[in-house]
Simulated scan of single mutants.
Amino acid sequence: MNDQTRTEIEAAAFRRLRKHLLEDRPDVQNIDMMNLTGFCRNCLSRWYQEAANERGIDMSKEDGREVFYGMPFAEWKAQHQTEASPDAQEAFKKSHD
């Protein structure tokens, strides 16, 4: 496999992951993802922003989130984010000390 084909396949896999998290499973909360996997949608949007910045593209944290979420983050939160349970909050604390 050549580099261009590999990059195209990796990009397609990323787009499918993004679609899955935003369209197929918006019910899965970021805190639960963090507790189980160590990353969430916000991490993915930050990695996107960092990759853009590394290539000389000026992109803020909020810009990266809007590109990733397809809407302003505040809008996503209002539509999909629920209050984290005390158990989820405690698990997050333990994993991020």
Rank of each mutant, 00 (worst) to 15 (best):
H20Y: 13
G64N: 02
E54S: 12
E54W: 10
L36S: 10
L17P: 09
A13G: 03
M71P: 03
M33Q: 12
G64H: 03
F68K: 07
A74D: 13
P26A: 07
G56N: 04
I31K: 01
L17W: 12
W47P: 02
L21S: 06
S60H: 01
E66M: 14
E54C: 12
Q29P: 05
P26D: 04
F73N: 05
G64M: 02
S60I: 01
D32S: 07
F39P: 03
C43N: 09
R18V: 04
M59W: 10
Y48T: 13
D58P: 04
D32P: 00
G56Q: 04
L17C: 09
D24Y: 00
A13V: 15
A74L: 14
L21Q: 10
L17M: 12
T37Y: 15
K19W: 08
F14C: 05
K19A: 10
S45H: 04
N35L: 00
G64C: 07
N42T: 10
D63F: 09
M71T: 10
E75K: 15
F73V: 11
M59T: 07
R25C: 11
I57Q: 11
G38Q: 01
Q49L: 08
G38R: 02
C40W: 01
A52Q: 14
E66F: 10
D32R: 06
E75N: 12
D58S: 14
Y48C: 12
A51H: 12
Q29H: 01
I9Q: 09
L22E: 04
F14P: 01
H20A: 14
N30S: 14
L21T: 06
E54G: 13
R46I: 14
P72R: 14
G38I: 01
G38Y: 03
Q49Y: 03
N35Q: 00
H20M: 14
L36V: 02
Q29M: 06
F73E: 07
R25A: 09
A12T: 02
H20K: 11
F14S: 08
D63S: 12
E10W: 03
P72A: 11
F73S: 10
A51D: 11
I57M: 09
K61D: 11
G64R: 04
L44A: 08
D24L: 02
Q49G: 08
D32W: 01
Q29I: 01
S45F: 05
M59R: 11
S60T: 14
A11L: 09
A52S: 10
G70E: 04
D58W: 09
I9G: 00
S45Q: 09
D58M: 13
E75P: 08
R46F: 11
N30A: 13
A11P: 00
H20V: 10
S45N: 06
D63A: 14
